[in-house]
Simulated assay, not measured.
Amino acid sequence: MKATRSKEILYVDYYTRETTEETAYIFFAMDDLSEYIFALGASKQISELIILQRFKKLIKHKDFKSSPKLPFTLVSSFGGEFEKKIKSIIFPF
């Protein structure tokens, strides 16, 4: 699968960063075509609420909203168990 236009395919993921006190989870999305990175924030934990907030942050990101409302595909290594809720967030866009 390879995008033919910007914001057609977006990869959403997070990485963990161990600190001396705790673990931080850093969320991001990457556009397949341009490799532009959307910073979606960090959290000290992962929960359904936080995951949904990060998807909502992507949808509302100024650089994501600037494109016309065309179909897009989200590819993620997490959140599958919340698929219906994630779709309810992105459906209006």
Rank of each mutant, 00 (worst) to 15 (best):
Ala3Tyr: 00
Ala3Arg: 02
Ala3Gln: 00
Ala3Ile: 01
Arg5Tyr: 12
Ser6Leu: 11
Glu8Met: 04
Ile9Leu: 09
Ile9Gly: 01
Leu10Lys: 10
Tyr11Leu: 06
Tyr11Cys: 07
Val12Lys: 09
Val12Arg: 09
Tyr15Ile: 07
Thr16Gly: 13
Arg17Pro: 00
Arg17Glu: 14
Glu18Ala: 13
Glu18Thr: 11
Glu18Leu: 09
Thr19Leu: 10
Thr20Arg: 15
Thr20Glu: 15
Glu22Trp: 02
Glu22Ala: 14
Thr23Asn: 09
Thr23Leu: 12
Ile26Leu: 12
Phe27Val: 11
Ala29Trp: 04
Met30Phe: 01
Met30Gly: 00
Met30Val: 10
Leu33Lys: 11
Leu33Asn: 05
Glu35Phe: 14
Tyr36Thr: 06
Tyr36Leu: 10
Ile37Pro: 01
Phe38Gln: 04
Phe38Asp: 03
Phe38Leu: 01
Ala39Arg: 10
Ala39Cys: 06
Ala39Tyr: 14
Leu40Phe: 05
Gly41His: 03
Gly41Thr: 05
Ala42Cys: 12
Ala42Met: 13
Ser43Thr: 00
Lys44Ile: 04
Lys44Pro: 04
Glu48Ser: 09
Ile50Trp: 03
Ile51Ala: 03
Leu52Pro: 03
Arg54Met: 05
Phe55Asn: 01
Lys57Phe: 09
Ile59Lys: 13
His61Thr: 06
His61Cys: 10
Asp63Trp: 00
Asp63Ile: 02
Asp63Gln: 09
Asp63Met: 03
Lys65Pro: 00
Lys65Gly: 00
Ser66Tyr: 02
Ser66Phe: 00
Ser67Leu: 13
Pro68Met: 06
Leu70Gly: 01
Pro71Val: 05
Thr73Leu: 15
Thr73Asp: 14
Leu74Ala: 06
Leu74Lys: 06
Val75Asn: 12
Val75Tyr: 08
Ser77Phe: 08
Ser77Val: 08
Phe78Asn: 08
Phe78Val: 13
Gly79Tyr: 02
Gly79Thr: 03
Gly80Val: 11
Glu81Cys: 08
Glu81Met: 10
Glu83Leu: 15
Lys84His: 13
Lys84Ser: 13
Lys84Cys: 05
Lys85Phe: 02
Ile86Glu: 03
Lys87Asn: 10
Lys87Leu: 15
Ser88Cys: 02
Ile89Ala: 05
Phe91Asn: 13
Phe91His: 07
Phe93Asn: 14
